[in-house]
């Protein structure tokens, strides 16, 4: 990062400091070129809000979500216990994740294996920061723009988080246009359940193209996402229809960072 350095928990611990919150970046956020931009936006927002945060860096490993969903409970628990050992070693209490899958696994599936933390998805944290005035959006880069929001299954149905992402869009002063299938009825992007890592079964259509139809119907300027895997699927959908020059697919963190000119 250009104007500040993101520290690791190891560095923070070595310097005798303490971090308020661990930023769990996730595999997509660490390695996927597109998702790295989301990661950077989150880091900038946290830094701007004056939050002392750190990452695990090379000590972070996949939460095990895709292994668990694909039925490999052994591998999942090995990944989980390895991560829990690291997290507990640093005495982590609060975690913000850049990915709804990491969020769900850390929040719901780690406690039974000995990992108990307060876990937030970045949209919830950003919304809190906006509400408490630690962040404020001025300038109105998105004023009046048609933005549609794609509910991530692992935020929405899996964890009943429907409002925080929408409240952020409201604060951007944008015009939120709902797709015909949204909230509890939202249609999956096609990536979850380890589908991201395999080809689809035979059928009439790819799931992300079905979702692309929903998006295009709302004639949006921006499609807002809150998950790096949804991001990949939705962008492919938009590209399939040759609309990538008219419609931007952006994570909510990117929208906020843009609006704040971070």
């Amino acid at each position: 990062m250009s104007d500040f350095r993101v520290k690791t928990m190891a560095e923070v611990a070595a310097s005798g400091e303490e971090a308020e919150i661990l930023f769990w970046v996730g595999c997509a956020g660490s390695f996927d070129e597109r998702a790295q931009k989301i990661t950077k936006a989150i880091a900038k927002i946290l830094h701007h809000a004056g939050i002392k945060f750190a990452i695990l860096g090379t000590e972070e490993a996949c939460t095990g979500d895709p292994a668990k969903r694909a039925g490999n409970e052994f591998l999942f628990q090995m990944m989980a216990m390895q991560n829990i050992t690291t997290l507990n070693m640093y005495g982590i209490k609060k975690i913000v994740t850049g990915c709804p899958h990491c969020f769900n696994t850390l929040k719901n599936e780690y406690p039974e294996l000995g990992g108990n933390y307060e876990v937030l998805h970045h949209t919830t944290l950003i919304n809190q920061l906006l509400q408490t005035g630690k962040l404020s959006i001025r300038g109105g880069a998105f004023k009046g723009q048609r933005i549609t929001y794609h509910d991530s299954c692992y935020l929405g149905r899996a964890n009943d988080i429907y409002e925080a992402p929408r409240e952020i869009i409201e604060k951007l002063d944008a015009a939120l246009v709902e797709m015909k299938r949204s909230r509890t009825n939202g249609l999956c992007c096609g990536a979850g359940g380890a589908q991201m890592f395999k080809d689809a079964e035979n059928g009439k259509k790819e799931v992300n193209l079905e979702r692309a139809d929903d998006m295009l119907e709302t004639q949006p300027k921006v499609v807002a996402a809150a998950c790096p895997f949804c991001m990949t699927m939705l962008r492919d959908g938009v590209k399939h229809h040759n609309k990538e020059h008219e419609i931007e697919v952006k994570d909510l963190a990117e929208l906020v960072a843009n609006a704040m000119e971070l």
Binding site: T39, K40, M79
Partner: peptide, 17 residues
């Protein structure tokens, strides 16, 4: 430690950009 074939040592490389 990731579902893709990336080196775990590169996990924090994004911080350098």
């Amino acid at each position: 430690q990731a579902p893709w074939q990336f080196s775990p040592m590169d996990r924090a490389n994004w911080t350098l950009e």
